[in-house]
Structure formats: structure tokens, C-alpha cells
Design a protein around this nucleic acid. Structure first.
Length: 119
DNA sequence: ATTCTGACA
DNA sequence: TGTCAGAA
């Protein structure tokens, strides 16, 4: 099944300009009809969803592009894609450690104030 | 009515 | 990311 950019936009909760931007950044390859209009496929849905998940982890567009380009090259690039994901996992874990620390600092400061007010 | 490209906030 | 113009 194919979808116009308007339909696909509603399906993915991404605006049409954002979808065009992702295409320009080579995150997704989009086919065109005879009138040069974009059409997205059913398979594109899962792919876009995964891109959104990568974005949610803070992966920059440039890195997602690297991954996407490899993906479009087929199964021969699976090892390299795995390496990208494993590396990014390390980055995310570091970010998590940073926020765990930030949260701790905040909680400690809150305790100080609470003890002050009890007096 | 909908989408396209390019330019710009 | 979003918005606007002018064309298809």
C-alpha cells in the first residue's frame, strides 16, 4: 500500500515538512509518482518509527543518516550497523549516568532546605 | 484540495 | 521545525 505525504504524515505524526527534511538528510529514500509527488510504502512506517526512536535517544541526524545509508545497502552492512548501535548505546549510558548524578544533586539540595525548615 | 521546491524566521 | 510564495 502506498501513501501520499499527507496520509503518511498522519500515520507517523510527523509533519510534511519534517518528512521532506528527513528525505533531504537521507534518513529515508522516497519514491515519486509520474507527477513527481512522493509516495511512502507500508514498509516505510516501521522504518520511520525506528528513526523516531533513535532520535528519542538523542542520536544526531548525521549519525542516523550513516545508519540509514548502510541499511539501504542491505544485509552486508549489518555488522557495521550493529557497531553504530553499540557505540550509541555507550553514549546513552553516559548520558543516563550524567542525569542520575544531576538528580542526586538536586535531591541533596532539597534535603538541606527541608532540614532547615524543620527548625 | 494537495503537494512541490526554495527561501527564510 | 514551521511557514510562505508561486507553480503543477
Amino acid at each position: 500500500m502506498n501513501y501520499s505525504i499527507g496520509q503518511f504524515s498522519k500515520l507517523t505524526n510527523l509533519s510534511a515538512p519534517t518528512l521532506r527534511y528527513y528525505e533531504q538528510e537521507q534518513l529515508i529514500v522516497v519514491s515519486r509518482d509520474s507527477g513527481r509527488r512522493r509516495y511512502y510504502t507500508t514498509e516505510d512506517i516501521d522504518w520511520i518509527l525506528f528513526i523516531k526512536k533513535l532520535k528519542d535517544t538523542g542520536m544526531p541526524i548525521k549519525a542516523i543518516r550513516e545508519y540509514a545509508v548502510l541499511r539501504y545497502q542491505g544485509d552486508s552492512t549489518i555488522k557495521r550497523r550493529l557497531a553504530i548501535l553499540e557505540n550509541h548505546k555507550l553514549v546513552v549510558m553516559q548520558e543516563k549516568a550524567k542525569w542520575d548524578n544531576n538528580l542526586q544533586n538536586l535531591e541533596e539540595k532539597i534535603k538541606v532546605y527541608q532540614h532547615k525548615l524543620k527548625k
